[in-house]
């Protein structure tokens, strides 16, 4: 028994060093690994919460329809029934939260209508298209077509 530990004394110093090294490693490791890292995978789990908390800019059409009855009814009756309000009117979440804080601008009809309805062979055949230069001879689209329900009676 005694012979086994005869030279134990000179092992104490490296053992102590090893322990100190291990302790330093553990302390540094705990300090540099961000909180929540590895909870779901090799990334910081709390970032998911950060990603979720970004502000919303498009309110969604349910919010629009909740107040704007008349326009909603008109739109629902025509071919634009499935076109979201904000696709033409732009992001209105601020307006939806507090209608007085932001008054939406009227869209510019000349560019707006043409973006979808200008003739292009790449568009689906069944989609209504016109060559604007021939179709309206410089007149504004909404002289004839009501944007919310563009069908002419």
């Amino acid at each position: 028994m005694r012979s086994t530990f005869r030279d134990a004394a000179h092992l104490l110093r490296p053992a102590a060093l090893l322990l100190i090294g291990l302790a330093v490693f553990l302390v540094v490791r705990a300090a540099v690994i961000p909180k929540g890292f590895g909870k779901y995978g090799h990334y910081r789990a709390p970032f998911l919460e950060t990603a979720r908390s970004k502000p919303i800019h498009y309110a969604g059409q349910d919010a629009c329809v909740a107040c704007h009855d008349e326009e909603a009814k008109m739109r629902a009756a025509g071919k634009h029934a499935k076109v979201a309000c904000e696709a033409c009117h732009g992001p209105q979440a601020q307006h939806a939260d507090d209608p007085t804080s932001l008054k939406p601008k009227l869209p510019d009809v000349a560019t707006l209508c043409a973006r979808c309805h200008e003739k292009d062979p790449a568009k689906p055949r069944t989609f209504p298209q016109v060559v604007t230069a021939e179709h309206n001879a410089g007149a504004a689209c909404n002289d004839c077509h009501k944007p919310h329900n563009p069908h002419l009676d």
Partner: peptide, 18 residues
């Protein structure tokens, strides 16, 4: 991600007219 986790659709899908 900030929209779909709150029950909304993405901005691109919301505004796709077709």
């Amino acid at each position: 991600y900030h929209r779909i986790t709150k029950g909304l659709t993405t901005a691109c899908c919301e505004n796709c007219p077709t």
